[in-house]
Design a binder for these strands. Structure first.
Length: 595
RNA sequence: GCUGAUGUAGCUCAGGCGGUAGAGCACUUCCUUGGUAAGGAAGAGGUCUCGGGUUCGAGUCCCGACAUCAGCUCCA
């Protein structure tokens, strides 16, 4: 779900400048109230700005209120911002004099010849490339949102600083609208809504990152899963079902033992393994398991491409602070597949994977919300990867060529590759704007050789196939989360855990209500029967405000006794319908997967 | 894992300075009710996340664990 755009009265670029200026106002206010605070960096971001400070005590909520008040005073004074430039040595001297070690470090890291500029407002001077508003008075509406820890320069090896987040606009109304939007995002948050709608829950005694899908959530996942498996079968995929765990031996071949050990649930440890005792580990990926299916017999070039898919449950030992609702969990189920192909088939197969992913996303209504990311290795962090630089460059060039020939709009990201190869990641933002990978398609020239996977080519030579690793809708838990947020819990009819809710207004209707429910069920419509015969206005609202596609009310005195009044979430009041007509309508909606 | 906040009934939350728990909604039973958040009566539901400690006495103070949330780091 992409963030709804607010309409500020200035351009996006002007707004960034304004917010950057606001971050300087923040820094000035903090220095006034906490003179010993050391300044780090304070940029504008998509939805506002932040500034990092090194302080003895983390900021409290009261601190933020005081800082915000001080900011208002600074803004009211409308101080001018004056830019000036210093040579490197003088710049460093100035920052040393002001007692700002982080600023000194920043200046020292600036490339030779780069202009070193400062901005001065009143008695406050800060290193900054700019640009800025001419006066702090331009920041008409500012709000501090939260304080949280953040590592200096984004590395967990560095000291943790205290970051203050805020946002700013050129008018009060835009700020209010933005804050209202943040509230709305909270309401759509799958982690809240998904629990309220009884799609999932968690349990302290089960543990974090291990959600329980409740009947309604499990039903949605089941529907997705059956649909995806059918779509894959139609595209020539062969289903496998492989074990959830394996001996350390397998992971040593795949490289996981060396490159992913911390991320695995290992039953035992490296010492036991070294003593020759059997050590099993739950699988964090399906690849090495599915490769064993390939290795079942000798393969000919005529067998390729070979497409395997598996609805695969994976286990990853994420660090404790990283879990989040259904988005980031320790156990998840994913539509994972591996394709073994000849070099001349890579492009077509890659395209096929992308076509499948796009088709699925389009059907779910999510295609308009995703972005594509070409994830490359980080040549400066070699120990994270297997294979040599030449392999990587060659594979990445191949992938870039395919992407460009497909005319795909994508961004490039260094250091985001898998340890065995580059990826095309399909990214989606959650309701709070945080981006996660939904789907990934990867090209791998390495693992086939490690596993001794070969095929006999037309020239009689044994060769290693190219492996494509791919998911189709990605993991079901995460997909469910994004769907909850996309539709605010009101799933399209074909995915809705309850498609029709049947209410009776008097017990005289109960028998007929059961008959109608049975009819709907016999056509595969998921119906929930409520025979409590209470006032129904209450119940229509109570049934989660328009989350159910069809509300059916039995019995209408005004027309005749055996009537069915239908209210559609999408089309409003449909009046009195025959059960047969309703069935036809819903069945058609399910068949076409209409949104 | 790091920084901070939080953890009281199914849900949302009250419980100033320690004296063994409350509200609204939901739930159960009954009465009334053929219509868009009706009314009435009665009732059930909590070892206050868990474990230690201080104390005559802990929901309340201290320590630890676990879980949840925000952010960082990491990642599908």
């Amino acid at each position: 779900m992409s963030e709804v755009k607010i309409k500020p009265e200035m351009s996006a670029e002007e707004l960034r400048v304004l917010r950057h200026t606001a971050s300087h106002v923040l820094a000035q206010a903090v220095k006034k109230l906490f003179p010993s605070a050391k300044l780090a960096i304070g940029p504008a971001i998509d939805s506002g700005f932040y500034y990092d400070f090194d302080v003895a005590q983390p900021f409290t909520a009261e601190d933020l209120r005081e800082i915000e008040k001080e900011m208002q005073r600074i803004i009211k004074r409308g101080a001018k911002l004056e830019r000036f430039v210093l040579p490197r040595a003088e710049a460093i001297a100035l920052m040393q004099e002001q007692g700002e070690p982080y600023k000194v470090e920043l200046i020292e890291d600036l490339p030779e010849g780069e202009e070193i500029s400062f901005y001065k407002m009143e008695d406050f001077t800060d290193l900054c490339a700019g640009p800025h508003m001419p006066s702090t008075g331009k920041v008409k509406a500012v709000k501090l949102l939260q304080a949280a820890g953040a590592y200096w320069r984004g590395s967990e090896k560095n000291r943790m600083l205290q970051r203050i987040y805020g946002t700013a606009f050129d008018n009060r109304e835009a700020l209010e609208a933005h804050l209202a939007q943040l509230e709305e995002a909270k309401r759509r948050d799958h982690n809240k809504l998904g629990r309220e709608l009884e799609l999932f829950t968690t349990s302290e005694v089960i543990g974090q990152g291990l959600p329980i899908l409740l009947p309604k959530g499990a039903r949605v996942v089941q529907l997705l899963q059956r649909w995806v498996e059918d779509e894959e079968e139609q595209r020539g995929y062969l289903l496998t079902k492989s074990p959830l765990m394996a001996k350390a031996d397998l992971y040593k071949i795949s490289g996981h033992w060396d490159h992913y050990y911390e991320g695995m649930f290992v039953m035992g440890d490296k010492e036991m393994d070294a003593r020759g005792e059997e050590v099993l580990a739950l699988r964090p990926m399906t690849c090495p398991f599915q490769f064993q299916a390939y290795l079942n017999r000798t393969r000919s070039y005529r067998d390729l491409p070979l497409r395997y898919n598996e609805t695969s449950t994976l286990f990853r030992n994420e660090a404790s602070g990283e879990m989040h609702g259904l988005i980031r969990v320790r156990q998840f189920t994913i539509s994972e597949g591996h394709l073994a192909c000849r070099p001349d088939q890579v492009e077509e197969e890659f395209f096929g994977c992308l076509e499948l992913a796009r088709h699925l996303l389009d059907t779910l209504g999510l295609l308009e919300d995703v972005s594509f990311r070409f994830s490359k290795w980080d040549p400066n962090n070699r120990e994270k990867y297997i294979g040599d630089a030449a392999d990587w460059e060659r594979t990445q060039d191949l992938m870039r060529g395919i992407l460009d020939r497909m005319g795909l709009a994508y961004t490039e990201a260094e250091g985001e590759a898998a340890f065995y190869g580059p990826k095309l990641d399909i990214q989606m933002r959650n309701v709070h704007g945080k981006e996660d990978t939904m789907i990934t398609i990867q090209i791998d020239f390495q693992l086939a050789e490690r596993f001794g996977m070969t095929y006999t080519d037309s020239d009689g030579q044994k060769k290693f196939p190219v492996i494509l690793h791919r998911t189709s809708v990605g993991c079901y838990e995460r997909t469910l989360a994004l769907l909850i947020e996309k539709y605010a819990g009101a799933f399209p009819t074909w995915l809705a855990p309850v498609q029709a809710k049947l209410l009776t207004i008097t017990e005289r209707c109960d028998d007929w209500a059961r008959e109608v429910a049975a009819l709907l069920k016999s056509h595969g419509v998921r119906v929930e029967l409520d025979l409590r015969n209470e006032k129904i206005g209450f119940k229509i609202r109570e049934s989660q405000v328009e989350k159910v596609p069809y509300m059916l009310v039995m019995g209408d005195k005004e027309v005749e006794d055996r009537t069915l009044a239908v209210r559609s979430r999408k089309e409003g009041d449909l009046g009195v319908m025959s059960p047969e007509a309703l069935v036809a309508k819903i069945v058609e909606e399910i068949r076409t997967k209409a949104r």
